[in-house]
Design a protein around this nucleic acid. Structure first.
Length: 233
DNA sequence: GCCAACGTTGGC
DNA sequence: GCCAACGTTGGC
């Protein structure tokens, strides 16, 4: 996650194979276009329409995001993957590269992020999951160097330097939310909105619960952000 | 720590 | 191309 490491070029590329050059990108797109198990009806179709039906500029362009990060220590292949909002604030410029994303749908969302867009920083896999801060995109997608680093827990031996599979963006801390916005509270609104058609009725936190990079519509973003003004319950 | 959800892999 | 087995995510 350290943005200052991005100049790292210690990897010897003596044995670059040519075999995969042209195939991998298409394969990835197909994989990412595969309907998720068990949700072949509405969820996937809607997503596909929005994302790729019209080829390039679809009617819905997402402009806000939710980024999950784990604030509590956990070892992955012997490496601690903890990265809390305090860790972000401690980075130079309070900026980090968002590396390690190894899911095609999440990657595609990363690649569609634009400079200056805002995102929620969400603490996951922890005692109190929820939104803690606002961040913004300060560098658009570029190759994730950790995919080529054998010592990195997210090393991908199938990725070629001349056609990298995985991307990352740089994000910068903007501010803490005025209060912690717990998942439980967002979920309660989501359930209510499913019944009354409110703004969180389709929020991806609940329909694609394992996706670590999620888009939010303007309405979703505005509603969730408005919660910071309320008294917690 | 348990386990449901769900993405990925690989045999056929 | 299907689908069972497997691995990971992440709430609880």
């Amino acid at each position: 996650m350290d943005s200052q490491h991005q100049g790292d070029k210690k990897e010897p590329d003596a044995k670059i194979a040519k075999t995969e050059e042209e195939t991998s990108d298409k394969e990835e797109e197909e994989k990412s276009a595969k309907p998720p198990a068990g949700s072949s009806k509405s969820g996937w179709k809607n997503w596909k329409k929005k994302e790729s039906e019209s080829g390039e500029e679809s009617k819905i362009t997402y402009c806000h995001w939710l980024l999950k990060s784990e604030p509590e220590s956990r070892l992955e292949k012997g490496v601690d993957v903890k990265f809390s909002v305090d860790d972000l604030k401690a980075q130079p410029n309070q900026t980090t590269c968002w590396d390690g994303v190894r899911n095609y749908q999440a990657r595609n969302f990363l690649r569609s992020m634009k400079l200056g867009q805002q995102a929620f920083f969400y603490h996951s896999n922890c005692k109190e999951p929820g939104i803690v801060a606002l961040v913004k995109i300060v560098k658009e997608a570029y190759p994730d160097h950790t995919q080529f680093d054998q010592k990195d827990p997210h090393y991908d031996s199938t990725s070629r330097k001349e056609n990298p599979k995985w991307s990352m963006v740089d994000v910068q801390f903007v501010r803490m939310t005025k209060r912690f916005i717990p998942l439980s509270e967002i979920k309660a609104h989501h359930l209510a909105h499913k019944a009354d058609g409110g703004p969180l009725k389709d929020m991806m936190l609940f329909s694609r619960q394992r996706l670590s990079i999620q888009p939010l519509t303007q309405e979703e973003f505005d509603f969730v952000l408005s919660l910071e003004e309320e008294k917690p319950h």
